[in-house]
Design a protein around this nucleic acid. Sequence first.
DNA 1: GATGAATGAGCGTTCATTCAT
DNA 2: TATGAATGAACGCTCATTCAT
Lengths: 223, 223, 223, 223
Amino acid sequence: MTDKQPSNGTISRSALRRQREKELRYQTILRAAETLFAQNGYHQTSMEQIADLAEVSTGSVYFYFKNKADLLVHLLTEIGGFLRMLVGTEFRKFDSSIEGFKSAGLVFFKNFCLENPEKVAILFRESTGQSLEVETLRKSLFDQLTADIKNALIQISKRRAADFTARLSVEVMAVCIVGIYERVGYHYLLWQNRSEDIMTIGEDAVDFIIGGVEKLIEDAAAK
Amino acid sequence: MTDKQPSNGTISRSALRRQREKELRYQTILRAAETLFAQNGYHQTSMEQIADLAEVSTGSVYFYFKNKADLLVHLLTEIGGFLRMLVGTEFRKFDSSIEGFKSAGLVFFKNFCLENPEKVAILFRESTGQSLEVETLRKSLFDQLTADIKNALIQISKRRAADFTARLSVEVMAVCIVGIYERVGYHYLLWQNRSEDIMTIGEDAVDFIIGGVEKLIEDAAAK
Amino acid sequence: MTDKQPSNGTISRSALRRQREKELRYQTILRAAETLFAQNGYHQTSMEQIADLAEVSTGSVYFYFKNKADLLVHLLTEIGGFLRMLVGTEFRKFDSSIEGFKSAGLVFFKNFCLENPEKVAILFRESTGQSLEVETLRKSLFDQLTADIKNALIQISKRRAADFTARLSVEVMAVCIVGIYERVGYHYLLWQNRSEDIMTIGEDAVDFIIGGVEKLIEDAAAK
Amino acid sequence: MTDKQPSNGTISRSALRRQREKELRYQTILRAAETLFAQNGYHQTSMEQIADLAEVSTGSVYFYFKNKADLLVHLLTEIGGFLRMLVGTEFRKFDSSIEGFKSAGLVFFKNFCLENPEKVAILFRESTGQSLEVETLRKSLFDQLTADIKNALIQISKRRAADFTARLSVEVMAVCIVGIYERVGYHYLLWQNRSEDIMTIGEDAVDFIIGGVEKLIEDAAAK
DNA sequence: GATGAATGAGCGTTCATTCAT
DNA sequence: TATGAATGAACGCTCATTCAT
């Protein structure tokens, strides 16, 4: 705490370095936890293993994270943000059209699942059925995703002059779509290791969704 | 040696009663585990708690089940069989038609989810991300469900003279449908407690599925 | 208890048969325990395993033996008696001469060790360091053996008109001899499996003992 | 990072002190286990008792030793090394002569048995008939002792220009001698508490051994 | 006498968390 | 800040023993 601020208002070089090192350590620990949780499971991973992989002491882990669940909470938050960013970007790019829907789906399978299988494992497997705190966070992440999809659906229906909600709760549709993404990713990446086929599979899944959505829009518009 | 075998080859009454009592104890313990796993979570439940709720000693629990994971395995197997029976019955009743599809979906939400929320919690939440053994069993249960749905889809497509597989892998469709059931049940029963609305919600979800399937059949038939 | 004694004083046939069966069961259980203790170790053997091998219920084991230690106590007593009988017979046959000494040694290696390796395991390995009760019995068995040998040594020394005790405590000599028997049996049968060589080895050991004894007799006589 | 490495390459004082304290704790725990194993027996001693006597927590015991058997393994290794050192030193001092033999024997009874009865209890009683791992270690310790004695015997026979092996396997002789030491120590210290007489008894035992050896050397030389 | 289900004290072990240095 | 030894509650599990039938 001595050399944080030199006499003038700027931050000293060594303070900056320490800041960087701190951030680096934080990341190293988080990545170690991610790797081990995904690989061996949350309960099968001890704090000591995480510390070992991150090459720090157990005490240090507790300096950066208040407890074991906190590691999962941070990972989950990070993963949730990352996923929303990926999908949201795609929707914005295509202006919430049906094209954006298709594109977002493919981005999910390619840039999320395929490139980050550990995140899939943590989001869909390891964070399931843990403490109340984690489950609450998990719920809120899923709720956000659902809300995003719901909004996109509403925009599309408006554009087509169809009143979606008349025939089907848009929210339920959104929940269904989330369920599809989740199980397809889980099934083909965590259970089977079909990394090479995942894009074809993803296209099929997106087709199923689009097909369903289109049909229901037609029905709604027909009324 | 007194009452096991009367002079003739039949089993004596008291032996039968003991048999019944043994089966009863087994059930009592299994139900206690189910309740506690669903309520507090697998890891938050101790063997002593299970014994207490079942009103037996911890030793007795180990007489009927070889270890804690074994309890989960038995529950999961039971739940998987029950679910397949429910859904399969419905398909058979409607001769694998699209009506059967609708009916099976509703049965899932009514007779499985609504009437057995603990089973939902265990199948979709508590059994996730446990030991390799449990995860393997879980995978096989999901695989069976997927295969059942896949077969139904193939039968329907045959009846309509449409070649489904041309447009979309039937298996992926089946996986999507399983994903929908899973997440809708989880979302509206475990996260929100919408027991009263579950049937309406279930109908919506089934409509989404039917919509998607119909659309894809049309597309396939058009070719 | 009804048909034990017919009106006259003789024992009924069925009572006799039951007597025989009881004795048989007792033996079956004891032999099962002996086998398992020798094979897997006393602590690594459970009462259930013994009951299983003897093809009776655990309850029956407790009818014949008051507890687990009691099994070991009975085995040990039996083994001790058997060993004393073997060796004693030999001494008596040769009239406590140096020939009897030699002969008894060889009988130990042949008729005790070679033909009953399980008894070697139990007497020298499994009964060591158990409860106070077992250790006390073990001590008394060793004491008896020691006393037998001591007496033989005294007789021999008397015959040679040598005063053994002048040079060396006869008891210590006896203890030494017991130690030789014990370790040679343990070393070459339990650690190495030299069943085929055991007689040659035994002869060597007996030679060592005889050599020592002779030498000390000479020394004593010389005085 | 504060006091681990001062600017130069040496280890700081406080790091040294911590090192010492760690070694001290290790010793305290090991000594507690030794005391309790010798006093109450290995199986009758719980990890909690050891922790209590060492005035640490059970967790600490597991920090220093991987499990209960590991404690016994460490004790046994330590005891084996100590014994070999004692006896070996004596042999070297007397240049593997018959005098060294005598001296080594007395050292065994005085500096090993008399001064460390707990070690006698653990080496000859508590380590017997435990797990495979312990029994293997035990065997290797006895094998080493046997080999040491065997070598000494060979040297002596060479010096006397006698071919020992002609009459008697040297190895068997060594095994006999080990057996004598073992049983005499066990008999007079663990069973009877003859601490005051142990030296006289030890001399007797050594005399018996020397007597035997001399006789056999004479026999061998005579041929 | 025989059975085997039931008991429950007891033990070894783990591991998240703390804290003196 | 960082360390890592220390803690101790908690848990899964075993198994000798009992006892109602």
